[in-house]
Simulated scan of single mutants.
Amino acid sequence: MTPESDAQQDGQRDGRRAAKKQRSFWKELPILIGIALLLALLIKTFLVQAFSIPSDSMQDTLQRGDRVLVDKLTPWFGSKPERGEVVVFHDPGGWLDETTTADPGPVAGGIQKVLSFIGLMPSAEEKDLIKRVIAVGGDTVECKGNNDPVTVNGKALKEPYIFPGNTPCGDKPFGPIKVPEGRLWVMGDHRQNSLDSRYHQELDKFQGTVSEDEVVGRAIVIAWPINRWSTLPVPDTFDQKGLGAAVAPPALGLAGAVPLVLWRRGRIARKAVPKG
């Protein structure tokens, strides 16, 4: 066999290998896409989900069109919404006006439904709102109007996040209201442009409060546009003494209890050892 024939056979083998690899890639591509979609769906369901800000009610903290990422994981471990957090929640009923949205067309509409299903785009059909938690179950919240501050359990809140030029509740005084257990009093940061708990006190016996069960999760970061990227921390005013201590989530309580139990068992075991 000549060197030329050996080289020719090697080239044919390399060509077959390349063709086989290419066929293998196209066979594996649907599987890879399926895995990616499944991971995106799991992330949306259990970890984080993107939401679009549809109104000006949370200015200047959030602008219309901002995309925020909402933490959906911690509620699975028993965490409940706390004062000062910005939360997304389902419409409790009657908070959102029935509006007709423009039909994006079958192609664009189909793409939006697919992307919203896997959590990469907000759904046009979801009836969700975003507000700041001011008071939680057991709190007494009040605002007398004019330039008076909002008070929680008698403590005045210093609210630097309120939209410039707005008053804490000059357009709609309220209270005192005792927030029922398992419910939240929520308000928008743009107080004079937010139909929040204040404006729904007559809807039912819960006086405009929102059930914790309606909460989708806490908004933790502005993800889009890039030039507005920032986190959404709890303002310092909600840490003041006398406002009321937050209850540790069960998971955190368990994590703290385990070392204590082990330490106690160690002490008991050492005492039980007879001294020589």
Rank of each mutant, 00 (worst) to 15 (best):
T2K: 08
E4F: 09
A7K: 11
Q9A: 11
Q9E: 13
G11L: 13
G11I: 13
R13Y: 05
G15E: 00
A18D: 02
A19P: 06
Q22P: 06
R23Q: 02
R23K: 07
S24G: 11
S24C: 05
K27E: 11
E28Q: 14
L32E: 10
L38N: 01
A40V: 04
L41Q: 13
I43G: 08
F51S: 07
S52N: 10
S55Q: 06
D56Y: 07
Q59W: 03
D60W: 09
D66S: 03
V68T: 00
D71S: 00
D71Y: 08
K72V: 03
T74W: 10
F77W: 05
P81H: 01
P81M: 05
R83A: 05
E85V: 06
V87R: 09
V87L: 04
F89Y: 12
H90K: 14
G94H: 13
G94A: 07
L96C: 06
E98F: 15
P104Y: 05
G105T: 14
P106G: 08
V107T: 07
V107Y: 07
G110Y: 01
G110D: 08
I111W: 12
Q112Y: 11
Q112R: 15
V114Q: 08
I118W: 06
I118C: 11
P122L: 08
A124N: 07
K127D: 05
D128I: 15
V133C: 09
A135D: 05
V136R: 04
D139W: 00
T140V: 10
V141P: 06
C143P: 01
G145K: 02
N147A: 06
D148N: 04
K155T: 05
K158F: 08
P164C: 01
N166R: 01
T167F: 15
D171M: 06
D171T: 04
P173W: 13
E181H: 13
R183S: 10
L184H: 06
V186D: 04
V186F: 07
G188W: 09
S194Q: 09
L195K: 14
D196V: 07
Y199G: 10
Y199R: 11
F206C: 11
E214G: 02
A219D: 02
I220C: 02
N227L: 06
P233V: 01
P233R: 10
P233T: 01
V234W: 04
P235C: 03
T237G: 04
Q240F: 06
L243F: 02
G244K: 12
A245R: 15
A248P: 14
A248C: 14
A251Q: 12
A251M: 15
G253W: 12
L260M: 07
L260Q: 08
V261M: 12
L262F: 12
W263C: 09
R265L: 11
R265E: 05
G266H: 08
R267T: 02
R270P: 03
A272Q: 00
A272L: 02
A272M: 00
P274N: 07
K275C: 01
G276V: 01
